[in-house]
Nucleic acid binder design. Structure first.
Length: 485
RNA sequence: GCUCCUGUCGUCUAGUCUGGUCUAGGACGCCAGGUUCUCAUCCUGGUAACUCGGGUUCAAAUCCCGACAGGAGCGCCA
């Protein structure tokens, strides 16, 4: 066991976002690679926006992906509690300390005043920061003010003229000027901490050694560093991950399409495919390899191989990869995976039919090479559950006439009639091939296939008939003939 | 506006640290061909990129400088 400890700290204000999942994934991989610990902490100090149902969504999504935490609200450890809302006492102690040491102070500007100041600064092309004249207010006087006024906040007394530097494991040296920070806010009240403050308290008390988070946090880092210094905490190692972008190169969000892990789950992506895909978004092994199991990823992962620039979430590549993972499944595994999707599909079609598992397994195996997402399974295989509906024009191969079509269907009918229900696709194919000889196979096979499936794209007629059986096949051919008579 | 980060095929990326073997490699996509009644799978081939401008050097995707472009942040959100 190494002394590496990393964490992911989502806020339960929405469903588990793929960006958050990717950050969790990298933290997890890093921790496991170094035999360290991975902590899941919930940042729910913003009570109004936080919601238990989202917290559950986060747990569920992470669990589904196979990213399990060593310590979390669900699995307590020595550094708990793991919800910020349950750690108020801890924060309070440190806020009070900063106040007592006069490194933090009460600011009594109203929101309106602050807003006006910001507008003015922006108009004058200055950075919109707040340098507060209350920073030197006598604590006793301030205490009196807090009784009388309701509009106040606690700010950090940012030192001026400081160059704040840190080493980022991905980006190298990064530096900021403290004068551009202003007297930033750290808490609304002694017992209501704000993000930048709560994070550093948590990271210190949870003994986090490496802070691996999204690039959007780079500009929070100098503020946190100042607080860490003021409190005499240990500085963790930082690594800022590139962002996941939408097709327009801006930060991935709902408007770019599905952005939450559970949406991908519902669409029928496999967890190992999403895991693999997300790992490759901003990281690579340094060679041409693209398929990795979780175990292999843990073995290969290193922060040095993490990309600096943002990566677009390319759904077509995910689809391809998901298809690859689907193709690797055994028939039995795939059956199990497809079952809930099939059940949903049948329910939506108001169908009450019950299908035998061994029958289903054959059907699913047939569609396996075509399947990109599990949710497609119902629509792709529906002709196995009930007679297809289709436009009669679809039956015609090239510019076949009606009489030619009937002749074609009857020829097929004749061949099939020689068989009895447990048939093998090889046998029936052989019979057809013998009949067709050197002729155009489409003339007979296309109408047959459409009669069977009602689709312009499907598996071959022989394999379908093998599953469907002779009687049902003949029934469908008869129905096709009816359409043209 | 200010600060920070980033810039290799449409997309994910290798190569950059340690300059030459890079007429820039792989994958997805797309296109064409083969297999095939159709679709998918499978196989073969093709398409397409070092942001620009200077400099250093015998030699630059690679080092330096400068432009430009894109992104993120600048909350009493996290």
């Amino acid at each position: 066991m190494s002394n590496i400890r990393v964490r992911i700290a989502p806020s339960p204000t929405g469903p588990l976002h793929v960006g958050t999942a990717r950050t969790a994934l990298f933290n997890y991989l890093f921790a496991r690679h170094h035999d360290g610990k991975f902590i899941l902490r919930i940042e729910d100090t913003d009570l109004e926006r936080s919601d238990k149902k989202y917290e559950e969504d986060i747990f569920e999504g992470l669990r589904w992906l196979g990213i399990e935490a060593d310590e979390s609200p669900e699995c307590s450890g020595p550094h708990g509690p793991y919800r910020q809302s349950e750690r108020i006492k801890i924060y309070k102690k440190y806020i009070q300390k900063l106040l007592d040491e006069r490194r933090a102070f009460y600011c009594f500007h109203s929101k309106k005043e602050l807003e006006e100041e910001k507008e003015k600064l922006l108009a004058a092309k200055h950075p919109p920061i707040h340098l507060c004249e209350y920073r030197t207010l006598d604590p006793a006087e301030a205490a009196m003010f807090t009784q009388a006024k309701s509009d106040y906040i606690i700010r950090f007394k940012t030192p001026s003229g400081r160059k704040i530097e840190f080493q980022d494991l991905i980006r190298g040296d990064v530096s900021f000027d403290s004068d551009l920070l202003g007297d930033f806010s750290i808490a609304k009240r002694v017992d209501v901490p704000l993000y930048n403050f709560a994070v550093i308290i948590d990271d210190e008390t949870m003994e986090i050694s490496h802070v691996i988070r999204g690039e959007d946090h780079i500009s929070n880092t100098p503020k946190q560093l100042l607080l860490i210094e003021a409190l005499g905490f240990k500085i963790p190692q930082y690594a800022h991950l590139p962002l996941i972008l939408g097709s327009d190169r801006s930060k991935l969000s709902k408007r770019h399409g599905p952005a939450s892990v559970n949406e991908y789950r519902a669409a029928g992506y496999l967890p190992e495919a999403l895991f693999n895909f997300l790992a490759l978004l901003g990281w690579n092994s340094g060679n041409d390899r693209e398929f990795f199991s979780k175990k292999e990823l843990i073995k290969e992962f290193s922060l040095e191989k993490v990309q600096k620039s943002g990566a677009i979430f390319d759904i077509t590549k995910l689809d391809w990869m998901n298809g690859e993972y689907i193709r690797k499944k055994s028939a039995k595994e795939l059956l199990e995976l497809c079952q809930p999707f099939l059940a949903d599909f049948l329910q939506n079609q108001n169908s009450k039919i019950k299908i035998q598992n061994d029958y289903l397994e054959k059907i699913i195996k047939l569609e396996q090479p075509r399947l990109k997402k599990l949710a497609e399974i119902g629509e792709r295989t529906e002709y196995f559950f009930w007679a297809p509906e289709y436009d009669k024009e679809l039956l015609c191969w090239k510019n076949m006439s009606d009489t030619e079509l009937i002749a074609s269907l009857e020829a097929a009918e004749k061949i099939i009639s020689n068989f009895q229900t447990p048939i093998s696709k090889e046998k029936i194919e052989e019979a057809f091939l013998k009949e067709i000889g050197e002729g155009d196979k489409g003339r007979i096979l296309w109408p047959l296939r459409v009669a069977l499936t009602g689709k312009k794209a499907s598996p071959g007629p022989f394999e379908i008939m093998e599953i469907l059986g002779i009687e049902e096949s003949l029934r469908r051919i008869a129905a096709a003939k009816q359409k043209k008579m």
